[in-house]
Design a binder for these strands. Structure first.
Lengths: 201, 201
DNA sequence: ACCTGGCCATGACACCTGTCACGGCCCCGA
DNA sequence: TCGGGGCCGTGACAGGTGTCATGGCCAGGT
């Protein structure tokens, strides 16, 4: 009996996944949480062996959770289950200590197998996704450029970004210009979209 | 036995919802599709009585599907099941003939009840969502303003938008200016975000 | 000691954007 | 018949944006 923990911010999806996995005779969902910062406590109390983690959750990112799980509960395996197959996410997930990476597009019947493989100590990564991840390569953005671009994601004007980052407007525009160049974009909005889609933010 | 059709672009979510609903003794999932434009055929062939529709799908929107179902298969009830509780979506869903509107945040146990209510001919709408929908009111945007704003969503420059819409740049800027004024935004990026969040696009 | 590269900043320039005033064309309701 | 309002366009202006050159500071590697 493999003991599972589910972390996803959408209650309906969480419950549905639980129903799906409980159909398997060798799997048992022992805990469900809707926030990233509730995973560690729940994992400790439930004695979960494998954690299915969504990436975009309130509190903590699934990637951050995977990192903390590795540090504090090294016996627990993390399996990232996310909507977005952004290339950069795969690399970051593996760096964070995740044992697997699955997108929500994959057929339902394959999920249970992924869980079993991860539990057995294997690494599970969507093959097409792994290829994309290698193709795209690592992020060319510096830390500051990524930070500025994150602030520019919603289309804020330079003045707002500068205040938020405690920088001068000129510096912000320089970072944005560099990011535009590195992403091959024409405007900062496009640069932000590209970097976001690649998982560089 | 209530016959259900599931439409959601994420295979994993689709399969998980099927597992969840099949647990109920009076419900039966008779068809699953991953695209909006496959729903009608599938509904006809499977003889589904209730269709669970995600809004954002390739091919056709869940809202558009609801409209066509009402026109061509009036006996079939539509239940919108979506991630985003945008106020404008609720109104548009009901106008399109949907019998219910549920967000993916709702507890899993309530979904089966929503299906039964819809099948019984009742309307099901998340109460807090209904309140928000009334609060926000209808879209103040004209058709063209909404179209231009849709094209501006990704941060394209005015020249690109103008080409895409077959308009002069001046006209595009006028429409954008009007939209910025009506949304109370400061930039077109913010206006696009606001309108999108309200379900006006 | 030297050079490279990230980071911060300034100033100047060309260009893009947001706003406003204005005019014209339609359709619809009073 | 006469507005009113949506729609399209022009022109002009102030301010925001993207680019470039330049300079200083600091950490790291040769």
């Amino acid at each position: 009996m493999i003991r599972l923990l589910l972390a996803d911010d959408q209650a309906l999806v969480r419950g549905a996944l639980a129903a799906l996995l409980d159909l398997e005779t060798d799997l048992e969902v022992v805990a469900q949480v809707g926030r990233g910062d509730e995973v560690l406590d729940a994992a400790r109390q439930s004695g979960a062996e494998v954690c299915l983690l969504d990436i975009e959750m309130p509190g903590l990112t699934g990637l951050e959770v995977a990192e903390r799980l590795r540090a504090e509960l090294p016996a627990v395996r993390s399996l990232i289950v996310t909507t977005f197959g952004r290339p950069g996410y795969v690399r970051r997930a593996l760096d964070a200590g995740a044992a697997g990476f699955v997108v929500k597009d994959t057929p339902a019947r394959e999920l249970a197998d992924a869980v079993r493989r991860v539990h057995a100590g294997l690494r599970v990564v969507d093959p097409t996704l792994a290829a994309e991840s290698l193709m795209a390569g690592p992020s060319p953005l510096t830390a500051r450029e990524a930070e500025i671009l994150r602030l520019a994601l919603d289309g804020s004007p330079v003045a707002t970004i500068a205040r938020a980052a405690h920088l001068s407007q000129g510096t912000v525009r320089n970072h944005l210009s560099a990011a535009i160049g590195k992403t091959g974009a024409a405007t900062r909005a496009e640069a932000a979209r590209i970097a976001h889609a690649r998982g560089w933010l």
